[in-house]
């Protein structure tokens, strides 16, 4: 039975939770669809993306927000990025997969990832600024997928 996950947050800890659940569900034989909206689009950003002409505010957003999983902060005790670094170190010590590894595993397991086009427009992200292999859609696509699923999470 399908599981759908709305990933709204762009925090490292919450992104980890979303991808651990997605990978667990896929390993249990379920179809999984992840719908990335708003801050969560930062998880999908390429560290180096082609430049685009953007409005002043979109340029500011783009410049100030994290470019990809390696740059994400944690939702508590981030301390300007130090917290995230320490969290990553502790997780490595505890043999927890990194977010990058979990994303890769999710792809290998066929987890479907959809980027919200409305949020992309708001934040000024073009398709080539996000990683490859995504689908691009809106709320109706999410709701259509949610209708076919028995679990839907908002993270």
């Amino acid at each position: 039975m399908k599981k759908t996950i709305i990933v709204f947050s762009g925090d490292l800890d919450k992104a980890l939770a979303a991808f651990i659940i997605a990978n667990g569900a896929a390993a249990m034989g379920d179809d999984v669809t992840m719908f990335f909206t708003f801050w969560a689009l930062n998880i999908l950003r390429k560290p180096q993306a082609p430049a685009h002409k953007k409005s002043f505010l979109q340029g500011m957003f783009g410049g100030m927000m994290p470019k990809g999983p390696a740059k994400l902060g944690i939702s508590k005790m981030n301390f300007g990025g130090m917290g995230a670094k320490m969290m990553r170190r502790v997780m490595r010590q505890q043999n927890v997969n990194s977010l990058e590894e979990l994303i890769q595993t999710a792809r290998e397991q066929g987890v479907k990832m959809i980027a919200c086009t409305m949020s992309m427009d708001v934040l000024g992200f073009k398709e080539d600024e996000l990683v490859d292999g995504l689908e691009y859609a809106g709320v109706a696509t999410y709701l259509g997928e949610a209708d076919e699923s028995n679990v839907s999470l908002f993270i």
Binding site: I20, G24, A27, G29, N95, V96, N97, T105
Partner: peptide
């Protein structure tokens, strides 16, 4: 061994 959640399940799959 050495992997944590969800590693063992992925390995089982």
């Amino acid at each position: 061994r050495g992997t944590s959640c969800p590693g063992p399940i992925l390995a089982a799959k």
